[in-house]
Design a protein around this nucleic acid. Structure first.
Lengths: 117, 117
DNA sequence: CTGTATCCCCCCAGATACTG
DNA sequence: CAGTATCTGGGGGGATACAG
């Protein structure tokens, strides 16, 4: 059964939309931030740093970030295997903004606490 | 039919996660940005500004933003009805970051074009 | 003009098992 | 250690109709 094509398949309607498509998603923000804090993180370290993520989602998200040129993936050919993830230059450009967002988040969380009392 | 409040579905694992939960979603970024650009927008104007949104999603998203105290909703009791949306002070605090993100997006889009040629 | 109310599809993401 | 593979469901979001 032919369904009508969706209104906007994949083209971003504006640059804000474009940017949100690239850093949106359930885990991307945190991954980028943790990579900023630690500079280099291995797969297992990321998995432990994000307690609620599954290996499937972690791999998938990392691949998307890599495809979008926000992170680098370096594989060491040794046993046991070792893979390191780092921010690319383009990815690093996002840090000031995530940093700002984090401060805003901290502030709001604090405000909520005060209000609750 | 009242549904359970959606403003804070789950506990955020960190402030980055918290912030992304509040501005994430398919349309929130653009809505906040357009409200910044125009200061005041009516429901119909927002609907026209986001060509790919349905009334259902627009209403739903606006309600969430309102519940999160990022936008204000002012109703004029007249015929025909008139509703105006504006950014709250808390919402305005997000503008520098969205602005930064927009510039980043513009830059990436430009870079993609150059690369394509 | 500013929304509600339904119906329903698709896909994100979780759970689990397995592999080089 | 660093991932695939497969199955599954829940809900985000689309289309449409209608109301105050």
């Amino acid at each position: 059964m032919q369904k009508k094509e969706k209104a906007c398949p994949e083209v971003a309607t504006c640059s804000v939309d474009y940017a949100f498509k690239r850093i949106g998603g359930k885990y991307k923000g945190r991954i980028l931030w943790y990579l900023h804090e630690h500079a280099i993180l291995r797969y297992g370290e990321l998995n432990r740093t994000l307690p609620d993520i599954t290996t499937k989602m972690l791999t998938q998200t990392l691949r998307e970030l890599e495809a979008d040129n926000l992170i680098d993936r370096k594989v060491y050919l040794e046993v046991p295997p070792k893979v390191e993830y780092t921010l690319t230059e383009v990815g690093k450009e996002l840090i000031p903004f995530i940093s700002y967002l984090k401060e805003w988040g901290d502030k709001q969380i604090e405000a909520e606490k005060t209000k609750a009392k």
